[in-house]
Amino acid sequence: MTDRTTPPPRAAIDRAGRWVDRAFRIQATALYLFLYVPIALVVLFSFNAGNRTGELRGLSLRWYQVAVEDPFAMGALQNSFVVGAWTAVIATTLGTLAALALQRTPRRIRAVFEAITYVAIIIPGIVIGIATLIFFVNAFAWINPQLAGIWAAIGAGAPPTIGTGLHTIIAAHVLFTMAIVIVLVRARLAGMDRSLTEASFDLFASPLRTFVQVTLPQLRPAIITGALLAFTFSFDDYVIASFVAGPGKPTLPMYVFSSIRRGITPEINAIAAMVLTVTVTLLVIVSLIYRRSSRIAAAQRAAATADAAAGTS
């Protein structure tokens, strides 16, 4: 019989292996270039000293100054910060409370609400935009006549009317960022050692004190992460904001988009670079918080199990 199991020479395997390695490395490099070159170009061209976006004529901060001095851009930036900050605060508060409530809910009901939470994250922004706009329009069409009626009844002069504006953007943003906070806090709660709460009870702390002194500090990384992510998503959102924004109060992404229709100027690049800086900074903070808390958790687990592994029971 012929010996078909004779392995190919060692050198051939090594050569083939090197080729596979090289191919993967090239593919990975190409992928990352495709992802990040356009972004790098935006940042690079934001330092353009020339007047046109297409050609780089030396580096300067000229367009940053133009952007900072542009009252419309700065107004939009301020709107974005206001919307992002309120979204973060409201979404984090409501989301954390919802997560805590879910923890105490019977399992079957909890499963339903968890599914709904995930759906809120998955639903496309455009659907949220349309749905919330229709809702607001109908709600205001009902509320405003009521207000008018009340004001007329008490004779208080011109009735106030509620319309779209930054508050409607905030409401729509809270809708889906809250779901993210719920998921984050729920995960942290589920991973929390129940005996910590019991230890606190055992050491004379009432349920309220236990919540403040033990539960909340345990949830802090998830809550901060949730707030930062909520801010980031709100700050970046164009689609939902463009549906529910009020007249004359654009967010920064809306301002950028409308400017582009008049042609891309290096000023837009400068604004984009600034937005990018804010977003990346926040995401880096998020990942640092997560790295730290998971490192601590790993250390705790290691300490708790190392001795158990060495035990002979």
Binding site: D193, E198, V214, A304
Partner: peptide, 16 residues
């Protein structure tokens, strides 16, 4: 939290 007994838990339950 109103009982004057204290517990040493199986996995210590120290506050991290």
């Amino acid at each position: 939290y109103r009982r004057n007994v204290n517990t040493v838990f199986q996995h210590y339950a120290l506050f991290p």
